[in-house]
Simulated assay, not measured.
Amino acid sequence: MWKSIWAVKATLTKGLCWRVGTGLNTSINGDAWIPNTVNFRLSTMINYMRNVKVNKLIDSNRLWKNELIKDTFAEEDAEIILRIPLARTPHDDFLIWGSESSSEFSVRSAYKLLQSSDENPRAYALQTIYRNFYKKLWTLHLPTKIKITIWRFS
């Protein structure tokens, strides 16, 4: 089981997104923090904001700095950023599972993420390449322990 988790680790981290609290630990360009976007990142990189944290976009009243955001980012990015809700009480930034509307991890959403990914086919290659073989194996009229042994060998 651990080998399987390790094999898909890089792909699963693509499902993680930072939920902005104070913004002190989340990088504008470097981290995934923008919901409903590709890989939860900006559509365009802002070079002069390479090492700037999200907290620079939040004012002392815990509101987004509208003018700064609209002047700095592409229109579509600015609109999405301004729609991100900020908590009234400051809290640390934390990771959520961005591939699910509930923000909670589920095997189903992880499976969908893996199926849509081209980068790590090894992690689920047996499932797609040998699908017909496994279907035939499980329909054979053999004792279950023999089917399981064949499945393990394969």
Rank of each mutant, 00 (worst) to 15 (best):
W2I: 12
K3D: 05
K3I: 06
K3H: 05
A7E: 07
L16N: 06
G21E: 05
L24E: 15
N25D: 15
S27Q: 14
I28V: 13
I28G: 01
I28E: 01
G30P: 04
D31V: 05
I34W: 01
F40T: 07
T44W: 06
I46D: 00
M49V: 04
V52R: 06
K53H: 11
V54H: 00
L57M: 15
D59T: 05
S60N: 05
N61L: 08
W64P: 03
K65C: 13
N66M: 13
L68T: 15
D71P: 01
A74K: 11
A74Q: 08
I81N: 02
I81S: 00
L82A: 07
R83Q: 15
I84K: 06
I84C: 10
A87H: 12
A87S: 14
H91M: 10
D93E: 10
D93S: 06
F94C: 10
F94M: 13
G98S: 08
G98N: 04
S99P: 02
S101Q: 12
S102H: 08
S103T: 13
S106Y: 11
S106Q: 12
Y111C: 03
L113A: 03
S116Y: 08
E119V: 10
Y130G: 00
R131D: 04
Y134P: 01
K135E: 14
W138F: 14
L140C: 12
H141F: 05
T144E: 03
T144M: 07
K145S: 08
I146E: 07
K147Y: 06
K147E: 09
W151K: 06
R152K: 15
